[in-house]
Design a protein around this nucleic acid. Structure first.
Lengths: 224, 224
DNA sequence: ACTATTATTTGAACGCGTTCAATTTCTGGA
DNA sequence: TCCAGAAATTGAACGCGTTCAAATAATAGT
């Protein structure tokens, strides 16, 4: 055990040094071109030592995920401050999302690889991601609450989560988008958000009640 | 050039031998545990020679995909034979898809993890997957053609591809589905297909023309 | 049949992520 | 202060996917 007062054993400093070295190299050269040997050297540590603290190269990215998440939550706040138009609110959140994640586009391979692996704790649908999922859903709940749009009661509970899934779809598209300045994704965000808002507003239409009920039944049965 | 009559140079036989060796080993031990050296040896060929015919290990899996798709196309044919109801046609195709891919669910972590990487040639949205993508789209074009549902001309060209993307979404859900007998995915297929058909039928409604136009504009701008 | 060109095949080599037995450094109790 | 055990650190080694210069076999033109 470590001394009573000291909060960090020596190892935690080393671990921090390795993380910082890794993040710097990832930022600089991307994930694939960053070798564990380079990370170790950059941290002033032996190769084997890096593996003493991180089970694998991918595990080094957990720190990154946390940073992305925090950055988006912070960046999105102003867009919700003084705005009551639902479309503008939604658009603001999605645009800041794109801004925040843009520097990480070069990681897309890894991001989506882990994100798509059902067994990976980084997977947004994985059990371990429940907190992140919940935070994301809450963000979209706030987007809705701050607007003056009325949501039918029966589906009100589902919509925020559906918006989060929608945003995951945006990210999925973004991952594959190699257009200049991510132009295609920006077009997608601007226009699909408009569509989404239109549909949300339409949902109160009595004509669409059957459709709404079908959708609700579906959501309940697949346990989303 | 090869002689007039002979349809296959020698190389194509070698290539076939390598594919067969690979598929056998994949089936036996999964993707990750099958080494290129084992494939080469199993095919009675040198390691380098395998790379002469296949740019990478992942390229060998295209053959696997091709077989799955062929199996699906064959299995789905009866469901399209004597049926004109769009929902039943769509449902038939999706259900047979689930049946065909079910044996691979246990490999999904290994197999589809790499497939999800935007840079991976296995990714369904990757350039190298264009043929598979096209075949898939054609299958859904057939689903539509055989039914009596009228699709508005402006979007007619887009719908088959959208249905294919929809089916990819189903597969993505399936990957994460650990419910007994894949019950959640089956619920999703049954009910979402109903919804999809409803929406397709609704699309001709003049009231929805603006929505249709917006969607079309979106699709064109993001180049889908 | 000879030759130039192209297609095929080889195996060594490279750099990578990862593992591990061995070594050194730290730490808390006698 | 000393020492046993735990924590931290090392670097060599392994197996992997991939590359490549060189060697060999097949082919087409003369």
């Amino acid at each position: 055990m470590t001394t009573a007062g000291s909060r960090t054993r020596k190892g935690e400093q080393t671990k921090a040094r390795i993380v910082e070295a890794a993040l710097e190299l990832f930022r600089e050269s991307g994930y694939d071109d960053t070798t564990m040997r380079a990370v170790a050297q950059n941290a002033g540590v032996s190769l084997g030592n890096a593996y003493y603290y991180f089970k694998s190269k991918e595990h080094l990215l957990h720190a990154y995920y946390a940073r992305i998440h925090a950055a988006h939550a912070e960046a999105a706040a102003p867009a919700l401050e003084n705005e009551s138009d639902l479309h503008k609110r939604l658009l603001g959140v999605l645009k800041t999302k794109l801004e925040v994640i843009e520097p990480f586009h070069r990681f897309s391979g890894l991001l989506f690889r882990t994100a798509a692996d059902p067994k990976s704790p980084l997977n947004p649908f994985h059990e371990d991601s429940a907190p992140a999922r919940q935070e994301g859903t809450q963000l979209f709940a706030r987007v809705l609450e701050g607007s003056r749009v009325k949501i039918p009661k029966d589906i009100a509970q589902k919509v925020p989560h559906l918006l989060w899934v929608y945003s995951m779809g945006i990210v999925l598209f973004w991952l594959h988008d190699d257009s200049k300045d991510r132009a295609r994704t920006h077009a997608l965000v601007e226009q699909s958000s408009e569509l989404v808002v239109k549909m949300i507003k339409m949902l109160s239409n009595p004509l669409l009640r059957p459709l709404r009920k079908s959708a609700l039944k579906l959501l309940n049965e697949i346990d989303v």
